[in-house]
Design a protein around this nucleic acid. Structure first.
Length: 796
DNA sequence: ACTCCGGGGGTTTTT
DNA sequence: CCCCCGGAGT
């Protein structure tokens, strides 16, 4: 984990802990052992540009970290002379850990191993004054706005221009501006035509936004990179100093770089050209947020004489999985081309199975997992739930699995829910800290001045704003003036006075280091009434929010002071997963990149869902190719078994929709795929079997689905053909739906629900129970609860 | 200042 | 179908 002090460290460092020459002599590079020839070349080719094309599971991270270790041990560079960039903090952390393990304890810090963004911050803080126009420029203490702040700011600007927020949504403008920043287009160099987007307001609002950011002494994420690039371009001396410092540059996931990152790298690398980029064009899945696969395809042109090293031996998957994935990705044009191979033992084929609808799909996967868990698949040996992942295309697919797993009591974890720091309570608390640390932070002020409710609504805020504007001061200062001049009514005034004096008091405390910042944070939350606000909140999620706040305060312990913490959070913070018991992982395909699991389920392979309709509509063939890469990423996550499933019908936005199996299914090499037969297919064909599947869609729907082209795709036909060949049917699982699922319950029964806990049945209607839980009344399908044991008391 | 209702929109996600 | 936002109404 990146420590605050690393981010804040402003010393010109040739510190770190270099290995002494003596230590090097005594160390015969044991870390090189076990590398294959290509990996070894990737580690030892230190001079000049290198492109490491590393297929999935080929030991890319190992090669990269070993290369860094090698640079250090060979004495080619001090730790502070190596620039290593990643996209995520997780990746950066992992690399640090692994380098540490390679070299023992000897290397304390690699100060310039981090994300593009965190490294840009460090650079920008040293040259903040050079960023800006005219009188407006950044100060080294600039704050970093997240997406939420960004949108609120844009909203204000749109309002200021008297534009209709409905016709020009701030979100859309934010997207537009992000796109420009991704391509390093400042308001001044927006190409003609681009600035006319947003009905001619695009360029103008963009300029206004940039100015506003400067006056707030703030930057957004896109600025971090764009400002660095413009800084380097406008100040050759500054660029030179950084070029001299970074003697070796390494880049992870190069296929995901956008134009701004590409320019950033090019500028830094162009002098010595010691740049090593690692990537896999087949795993480029972030085109929709500005990544340019072109960057990796063009590498050899950009850096003439570049050595291209291909890592092609896969250490992760069985030959079957690898062959299926390779066959699939072969359908893409314009690849750099790699041939992955493995000498791993043969395993099971990739399994393919179709279901009537999304519910059946979830039910079947749940049963499969239970079978693994119970050891009913001897070929797989003992399987931990931690070894199993379900990778979906879109997060709304997760719900069916959550519902099902909740019902059958299968522990699962959803990876990639709302991030910790994006939660309301965390953002509120941080706004308090921000305001204490930087009194000029107007956005923070606006966020919390009436949170908790202090009777300071729109009108009060307007008064404060005009007081601030008239005096040319921050909102906090404006509020102080309002209090002094008694520009507000009784209760609001008193509350505002308390608020202002509170902030002032905490500011004093923050400066004198007598009390720890952790205690201070607690006091801020308590004395402001923020904690009390949630304590008094009766909603079921209030306790969780209080827990989050506790967690937040606890996280502070790791830092020197509040500033350090805020900096960290703005760039780095991600929830630390408390690894509880064994759980199945549910996540999106995007979220799964870089991970691996012995057993992987890939549901929802239907045209329109995957490949996603919108991706196809908006980007045509390019869109399909990116989707195909996503499929490739999904398959290559699997070590021992991959199972692809699709459903003929799915409820989307309340509408039942039928779909054809994904075109990607047709593209899988048949010899590596085993087609399973879904339970219920036996006797009477698919449609007929579904007619009594329970909870089925309306009759018209079934008819339509039965007639639909589902059966005409090659994949489906293949599947049917194989199903017919099969001798022993897969045992049909007992479906839990009886004639009347509510039959077993009567009013007054005590029941238990996986999520809501204990409750009491208050009403019954057609399979649905109305149950009073601690969290309140819920209408719940009878199959989701079980009777509570007699010894258990319902607590109300 | 708070609550309720209607309309719109609903891939993917990091920093 | 469900969630979020904004406006109107109390």
């Amino acid at each position: 984990m990146v420590r605050a002090m690393e981010l804040l460290d402003d010393s010109d460092d040739f510190d770190g802990v270099p290995l002494s020459q003596r230590a090097i002599a005594a160390r015969p590079a044991p870390y090189l052992e076990g590398l294959n020839a290509a990996q070894r070349a990737a580690v030892e080719t230190l001079d000049g540009p290198v492109l490491m094309l590393a297929g999935a599971g080929t030991g890319k991270t190992r090669a990269l970290t070993t290369r860094i270790a090698h640079l250090l041990v060979q004495g080619r560079a001090w730790p502070s002379q190596i620039l290593a960039v990643t996209f995520t903090n997780k990746a950066a952390r992992e690399m640090k850990d692994r380098i540490g393990r390679l070299l023992g304890e000897s290397v304390e810090g690699l100060p310039w191993l981090g994300t593009f963004h965190s490294i840009s911050v460090k650079i920008l803080r040293r040259h903040a004054e050079l960023i800006g126009n005219g009188d407006l420029h950044l100060k080294p203490s600039f704050t970093i706005l997240d997406t939420d702040d960004q949108i609120r700011l844009l909203k204000q600007l749109i309002q200021a221009e008297n534009l209709d927020e409905k016709r020009w949504p701030a979100r859309q403008l934010a997207h537009l501006i992000d796109g420009w920043k991704n391509r390093c287009l400042t308001p001044a160099n927006l190409p003609k035509g681009e600035d006319a987007t947003f009905d001619g307001w695009g360029g103008r609002l963009y300029q206004a936004y940039q100015n506003r950011l400067l006056t707030l002494n703030a930057v957004d994420f896109g600025d971090l990179l764009m400002h660095c690039v413009t800084l380097f371009q406008a100040h050759p001396d500054v660029l030179k100093s950084w070029q001299d410092r970074f003697r070796y540059i390494l880049v992870d996931e190069y296929q995901d770089t956008n134009v701004a990152q590409y320019m950033w790298l090019r500028l830094l690398a162009q002098a010595h050209r010691n740049i090593c980029c690692v990537g896999d064009d087949d795993q480029s899945i972030y085109g929709w947020r500005g990544a340019e696969v072109g960057n990796i395809l063009r590498f050899e042109k950009d850096f003439p004489g570049a050595q291209v090293i291909r890592l092609e031996q896969n250490y992760r998957s069985t030959p079957e999985i690898l062959a299926a994935a390779s066959g699939l990705i072969a359908a893409n044009a314009g690849r750099l081309g790699k041939t992955l191979w493995t000498d791993a033992e043969s395993g099971e084929k990739v399994r393919l199975i179709g279901h009537w609808d999304g519910e059946a799909e979830a039910r079947w996967i749940g049963e499969e997992i239970e079978a693994f868990q119970g050891g009913h698949r001897a070929s797989m040996g003992p399987v931990s739930l931690n070894d199993i992942a379900i990778l979906v295309r879109a997060s709304h697919q997760m719900r069916a699995f959550e519902d099902r797993f909740m019902t059958i009591g299968l522990p699962y974890r959803v990876i990639g829910g709302p991030r910790f720091y994006e939660r309301q309570e965390i953002r509120d608390a941080m706004a308090y800290f921000r305001l204490v640390v930087s009194p000029d932070d107007d956005l923070a002020f606006e966020r919390i001045v009436n949170t908790p409710k202090r009777g300071l609504g729109d009108k009060a805020v307007k008064t404060i704003q005009s007081a601030a504007r008239n005096n040319g001061v921050s909102l906090l200062e404006g509020a102080r003036i309002v209090v002094e001049d008694k520009q507000l009514g009784g209760k609001g005034l008193a509350n505002l006075r308390d608020f202002v004096t509170g902030i002032a008091r905490w500011q004093v405390d923050a400066l004198n280091s007598a009390a720890s910042h952790v205690e201070l944070a607690e006091r801020i939350l308590d004395e402001s009434g923020y904690t009390a606000m949630w304590q008094n909140d009766k909603s079921p999620d209030a306790p969780g929010r209080l827990d989050n706040l506790k967690e937040l305060v606890k996280a502070l312990e790791e830092f020197e002071n509040l500033q350090g913490f805020l900096e960290h959070v703005a760039l780095v913070m991600d929830r630390d997963k408390d690894e509880a018991g064994e759980e199945v992982s549910i996540m999106t395909l995007h979220g799964a990149k870089g991970l691996e699991f012995p057993i992987v389920f890939l549901p929802g392979w239907e045209d329109g869902l995957f490949p996603n309709q919108r991706a196809m509509d908006e980007n045509g063939t390019k869109g399909v190719e990116e989707e195909r890469r996503l499929a490739y990423v999904g398959l290559t996550r699997a070590e021992r078994m991959a199972t692809i499933t699709f459903a003929g019908n799915r409820r989307l936005y309340g509408q039942w929709q039928s779909a054809m199996p994904s075109r990607f299914i047709d593209e899988l090499p048949p010899e590596h795929v085993e087609v399973l037969t879904p339970p219920g297919l036996y006797g009477g064909g698919y449609g007929a079997a579904m007619a009594h599947a329970g909870g089925a869609p309306a009759a018209g729907m079934q008819e339509r689905a039965a007639r639909a082209d589902v059966y005409n795709s090659p994949g489906w036909k293949r599947m049917q053909a194989r199903a017919a060949e099969r001798k022993t049917p897969i045992p049909r699982a007992t479906v839990t739906i009886d004639a009347d699922p509510a039959a077993g319950f009567s009013v007054g029964d005590k029941v238990v629900h996986a999520k809501f806990g204990q409750g009491q049945v208050m009403g019954i209607a057609e399979g649905t129970l109305t149950v009073q839980f601690e969290a309140g009344f819920k209408n719940i399908k009878a199959s989701y609860v079980r009777p509570a044991g007699d010894d258990q008391d319902v607590p109300f």
